[in-house]
């Protein structure tokens, strides 16, 4: 063992190894399903935010989740991304990755990306730097300190800039982007992460009609290559993109099906009109 390998190994012992080496294998979706949530229960001081929630999402599917406030939509996202640990139940990403055993960064590396309700881009960094930060690859200190981006990563950035239509904004500080542009940048960051599954929380809240339309196009263009789960209140938007809608209520699934099916479902009508 020469000196530089020894130094590097010592370094890795203390500061952690490259992210890739610890990355769980890609989700196994041979059965066509990418996310399995079964009997998930989460209680906060006795209040059951999720009550035996069972939900499956297919690979490449664009799924919308709707439900009144407090239905458990955000808690469900928190469970999937590892922010909240459920009291009971199981959560699998593909057939082989047990989400409940992974930490938040490990889940992100496994391929689940989350877009928060409020745009959370790095405001002091440029659009390009935001995408660079999110780029999949070795995220260890050693790598980020000494090696520049690979050609593959740079191509990917260009491609994503195009997808989210921010090519002419690449050197703009993210903080000065419009609200809609920030949301798209954030979706671009999820794409940079090579996220197989995107969790998108209220993407069109506060957007202009043109921006809403553009966002719908963007999400639809991802269908097939990525599984996308959208939580949204805007019914027109949901109608414009959704193939399948899941209605959550009091921590469990109330109804599931096409938009027309759920809108005519007696239980759904009661919950929404009864409010």
């Amino acid at each position: 063992m020469n000196a530089s390998t020894a130094l590097r190994q010592g370094w890795q012992k203390v500061f952690g190894t490259g992210a890739r080496s610890e990355r769980p294998i890609a989700p196994d979706t041979t059965h066509g399903t990418i996310l399995y949530l079964e009997d998930i229960t989460v209680s906060f001081d006795g209040f059951k935010a999720l009550n035996a929630l069972t939900l499956y999402v297919d690979a490449g599917e664009l799924r919308c989740i709707i439900g009144p406030n407090g239905a458990g939509k955000t808690t469900m996202m928190d469970v999937i991304t590892g922010k909240t640990r459920p009291d009971a139940g199981s959560a699998w990403f593909g057939q082989t990755i047990d989400l409940l055993t992974l930490t938040e960064p490990q889940i992100a590396e496994a391929g689940i990306g989350r877009k928060f309700q409020k745009p959370t881009v790095f405001e002091q960094h440029t659009v390009l730097e935001n995408l660079e930060l999110a780029a999949a690859g070795n995220k260890s200190i050693w790598a980020t300190l000494f090696s520049p981006l690979t050609a593959v990563q740079r191509d990917r950035i260009d491609h994503v800039l195009e997808t989210v239509r921010l090519q002419d904004r690449r050197d703009t500080r993210a903080g000065v982007l419009s609200h809609g542009q920030k949301q798209w940048l954030e979706i671009g960051m999820l794409l940079m992460q090579d996220a197989q599954m995107l969790l998108v929380d209220e993407p069109v809240a506060g957007m202009t009609p043109q921006e809403v339309e553009r966002t719908a196009e963007l999400l639809l263009s991802l269908e097939g290559q990525h599984s996308v789960v959208v939580v949204e209140h805007d019914m027109n938007f949901v109608r414009s993109i959704a193939r399948k809608v899941t209605v959550l209520h009091e921590g469990h699934v109330l109804a599931e099906g096409t938009m027309d099916q759920v809108q005519n479902d007696a239980k759904v009508v009661e919950v929404y009109l009864g409010e």
């Binding site: 203390v14 500061f15 938040e104 960064p105 930060l133 995220k139 200190i141 992460q193």
Partner: peptide, 14 residues
């Protein structure tokens, strides 16, 4: 947010 996109924040700070 940085932790969410896969960086080991504690290692960097340390």
């Amino acid at each position: 947010r940085t932790r969410f996109i896969g960086y080991r924040v504690e290692s960097y700070k340390l």
